[in-house]
Design a protein around this nucleic acid. Structure first.
Lengths: 190, 190
DNA sequence: CTATATTGAGACAATTATATCTCATTTGCA
DNA sequence: TGCAAATGAGATATAATTGTCTCAATATAG
């Protein structure tokens, strides 16, 4: 190992554990800590050394998910240029991350930590701005509220992840499918 | 009370309890049976007399939700006529029922009862047929799988219910909002 | 009005998951 | 190799919830 990986070893391990926990919780949302430890290939004791308690683990999963979303927005440079292109780039990034984000839809993390709802809203703010920009420059419909459009995009993203997860949609086709349906709707153009 | 309400009194009570339980579980998905009983204004003991255990209650909620969906499909007469009109009628019916359906998205009831997944799929079958009919008669896009379109409609319905529930969308405008966005998409038509 | 059924309140046991702790073993690093 | 840190296995304590039960109070039907 690298000499400087010393500090980051524990962090890496933590991330690995978050990934494993997320995987199992996607399959069985009520899995116990013992289940999670076993699934991750470690003992309960060690899991507790990384996450003091269950809430700690769930919140870590939640905040990690928010960070991934925030980074996706940042990397996609959504502040300028075509809004639809930006939405495409964001989708391409987020769809494959669904297995690390699903708890944002399934778990009510604000019940564990009062600040979480605010953090989630703050994370989504760039997306809301993007949508409003799209409405202002006529790329997106402006006869509907930006909040509703964001909500729909949000759940459509979840829907496409579920479709991939359950095997009804191809992983590599998912983002395209999502975008074309979301942008142009399900009705035929006549 | 009506003389003939004799038999149905318990059933009515059961339905009332399901409604109350659904309400509370929408707010706090992890509410205990004691919480539910208190919220419904009855004692734990009485709740246990109507539902033997927690799984029993959850499954009752689940199957009741499926029945409501099935009835919505039946009442909307979706087998013939315009597919888009049929989708409109179904949406008008289902959107206000969101508070009785939400656990279909949030809870993994198939874990409690192996048959539930099959029952859910059977319930959705008329909708799948409707979509396929729409694809066949060119009302709906046929360049995407019917399964994906159904999945998206499903989660879009959930999204609009959440929007209403959280106060971001008007209850009486929700179905229209859902339909126009779903059918025509979020992009501007130029 | 009276008998019967239903309910409420709460005690109680059983179950389950969580969280802490100990100690032997293993691992990684100097 | 040898030492320090990390881990595994499991015992144990704690907490929360579930499910059962009793009995008095209430409601309902005849």
């Amino acid at each position: 190992m690298q000499p400087n990986a010393h500090d980051s070893t524990k962090d890496t391990r933590r991330v690995d554990l978050l990934n494993k926990a997320g995987e199992l919780l996607a399959m069985r949302p009520t899995a116990s800590l013992a289940d999670i430890a076993t699934y991750a290939g470690i003992s309960k004791a060690t899991l507790h050394r990384y996450f003091a308690n269950r809430d700690d683990l769930m919140l870590a999963l939640g905040y990690r998910a928010l960070e991934l979303v925030a980074r996706a927005f940042a990397d996609a440079e959504i502040e300028t240029g075509s809004v639809i292109d930006a939405l495409t780039r964001v989708s391409e990034t987020l769809v494959p991350l669904g297995d690390k984000l699903h708890l944002l839809w399934n778990e009510s993390l604000y019940a564990l930590h009062p600040d979480f709802a605010a953090a989630e809203q703050a994370t989504q703010e760039p997306m809301l701005r993007l949508i409003k920009r799209g409405q202002a420059n006529s790329e997106l419909r402006d006869d509907l509220s930006a909040e509703w459009l964001m909500q729909l995009i949000d759940y459509a993203l979840f829907a496409v992840w579920v479709s991939v997860y359950e095997g009804y949609a191809a992983r590599r086709d998912a983002a395209r499918m999502l975008l074309t349906t979301l942008l142009d709707g399900i009705a035929s153009r006549s």
